[in-house]
Design a protein around this nucleic acid. Sequence first.
DNA 1: ACCGCAGATGCGAGCAGATCGCAATAGGTC
DNA 2: GACCTATTGCGATCTGCTCGCATCTGCGGT
Lengths: 160, 160
Amino acid sequence: MTKPPAPVRKAVGHAPSSVEDVMELVRARGGRATPSRRVLLEVLFEARAHLSAEELATAVQERAPDVHLSTIYRNVEDLQKLGVVVHSHMGHGPATYQLTSAAHAHFICEDCGATLEAPDELFADLARTVRDTLGFAIHPHHFGMLGLCARCQERSRTSC
Amino acid sequence: MTKPPAPVRKAVGHAPSSVEDVMELVRARGGRATPSRRVLLEVLFEARAHLSAEELATAVQERAPDVHLSTIYRNVEDLQKLGVVVHSHMGHGPATYQLTSAAHAHFICEDCGATLEAPDELFADLARTVRDTLGFAIHPHHFGMLGLCARCQERSRTSC
DNA sequence: ACCGCAGATGCGAGCAGATCGCAATAGGTC
DNA sequence: GACCTATTGCGATCTGCTCGCATCTGCGGT
């Protein structure tokens, strides 16, 4: 393990940009830099798609076969407390986890399950209105918004 | 059971306005007018709040003690297929069921669980934009939108 | 280099919410 | 009234997730 001496960066804030940054943050909060944690973070940093806990476990186990699913759950929870990770609920089915820096809102088709990624600006007007009228601060990432994708709207129109 | 002769109304459409209307619709689709179904509908028509399956079961069992939870699940599912009932997911926790005519969107506080009811107009702009840009038809009732209520925003501000 | 302790882990049990299989029951049409 | 099939009660099962506990290990102190 020839590892560069990891220059002391402080004030990483809430957007650590590498696995080692996060490990440093973990240690700064009294946590420990364990292999499972490191591998989990590697998977999260490399992830292209939205991964459920089960999928994360499978990916992690390719590199560290003994990591248990419950360890994944405990680690993503810890990382959420550090602000490094967030989870989203994509309709029915398991939650998915991603780096906070990669988070965004989703539209999910009730019929075919397709997910569309949504730029946050889409929600800006709604967020402002809701804040002004109800005092409520929406978190559009947390739960995907359901509905019907174009294809399934078409299909349900023609099949009736 | 002295029951009025139930004047034949047809074309009830998707907004039946009484228990007997719905029972008629059920029969028209080959279903049967069972006591559990009737009591469940009574509960739904009288409901002021959002009721989970468990809560529906408890309420139904006050009038018909032997109705099983799984019967509630099966009946709400059937009634959803008829378009009479819809369910909503209010953050974590069980789904809630209500008459389609009483459905609306929700904002749910992640901290305290408070739910705010939202007029559909709030989503009109978003719905139009999403339809025009992504071809996606949002169903804002299906999943509540999470965030922080005014009180909990205040509390998290002062406690830091 | 070693100790010691608190944090982390593996593993299985347990939990909540929801669904399913099956035998028994009961609407409602004839 | 008989028959067919929808519906029901009941428990088993499933999924997604959390927890308890004995064991292990990172890492700060010496």
